[in-house]
């Protein structure tokens, strides 16, 4: 009746239960990815297609603007989510849970819907345009510019990040803050030297998710149809409009490696404690 006996007797069953997932994953993910890599290298450029993202000015520009946008969104989202998240975790007041619900419910909105939300705010018939016309006589429309993309990416990033920050803020040791305060630290010093360092692992994991999601986001840019080319839009254009299939394959594989690396690096940096939530 010892455990090893039970585990050994169960082994065929365990393999049988695992098999369907492995078959599905091999057939519909691993094999297609291998094919993607092969097609990427099989175009007129050969393996050089993988370098095109830096050697070809058009793709390189697209890569740079996507990286800049994603990094900017990550920094802004972390700042916004930390101010709001720590505040909500630390204070009890009427309407608190309603605020939390409002801040987290767009969590699963698809990118296309987020794009439409930006049009509602900053499009040609948008709220911001109406308000600015009342105030200044000028109609402010920025949905279809870089600012519009930034707005959309903030929209889908804030709900994701705020949950992680709130969970991390809940686990912070309040005694450390008390100790710092009793030793004469100002409120700002407590924030800078105690709270923010304590939230570091959450910043790394939430920041990486935010960055990776922004790099790969397609629906929002698609709906806004901006003049700024983000990498997923570039790939989409190459594939469908230019029928440049090898290059689209190579670019999307490079993009996949970038997002995967961002997540993997953050996980290593933050230590195994956040592995489950990253």
């Amino acid at each position: 009746m010892a455990t090893p006996g039970l585990a050994r007797r169960d082994r065929p069953w365990l393999i049988a239960l695992m098999l369907p997932v492995l078959v599905i994953f091999a057939a519909f993910f691993i094999l297609p990815m291998v094919r993607l890599a092969g097609v990427g290298a099989g175009g007129p450029r050969g393996l050089a297609a993988y370098a095109a993202i830096v050697t070809e000015p058009r793709y390189f520009r697209s890569l740079l603007s996507t990286l800049a946008l994603s990094a900017g969104v990550t920094v802004l989202t972390l700042a916004i989510a930390t101010i709001a998240g720590v505040f909500l975790q630390r204070n009890t007041f009427r309407g608190r849970s309603a605020l939390i619900a409002m801040l987290t419910f767009p969590l699963a909105f698809p990118g296309v819907v987020v794009g439409f939300m930006v049009i509602m705010l900053a499009g040609r018939q948008g709220l911001i345009g109406d308000i600015s016309r009342l105030l200044t006589g000028q109609k402010l429309v920025f949905a279809y510019s870089m600012a519009g993309l930034l707005t959309g990416y903030l929209y889908f990033s804030i709900p994701r990040v705020i949950l992680t920050i709130m969970a991390a803020a809940e686990k912070l040791d309040r005694n450390l803050e008390e100790a710092a305060r009793s030793m004469g630290a100002s409120a700002w010093q407590v924030v800078r030297d105690v709270i923010l360092p304590g939230l570091r692992p959450a910043f790394l994991s939430a920041g990486a998710i935010c960055f990776a999601t922004s790099m790969g986001a397609f629906g929002t840019a698609f709906t806004l149809a901006t003049e700024i080319e983000v990498l997923p839009m570039t790939i989409y254009t190459e594939f469908t409009l230019r029928a440049n299939i090898a290059l689209a394959a190579a670019l999307s594989l490079v993009l996949g490696v970038i997002t995967w690396l961002a997540l993997a690096l953050a996980r290593t940096a933050a230590g195994s404690s956040v592995a489950a939530s990253a």
Binding site: P32, L36, V39, G216, P232, I235, S252
Partner: peptide, 14 residues
Amino acid sequence: AVPGLATALALILA
């Protein structure tokens, strides 16, 4: 971890 666009492209190619 990999953008949906890449997975979709891979499925189409395969």
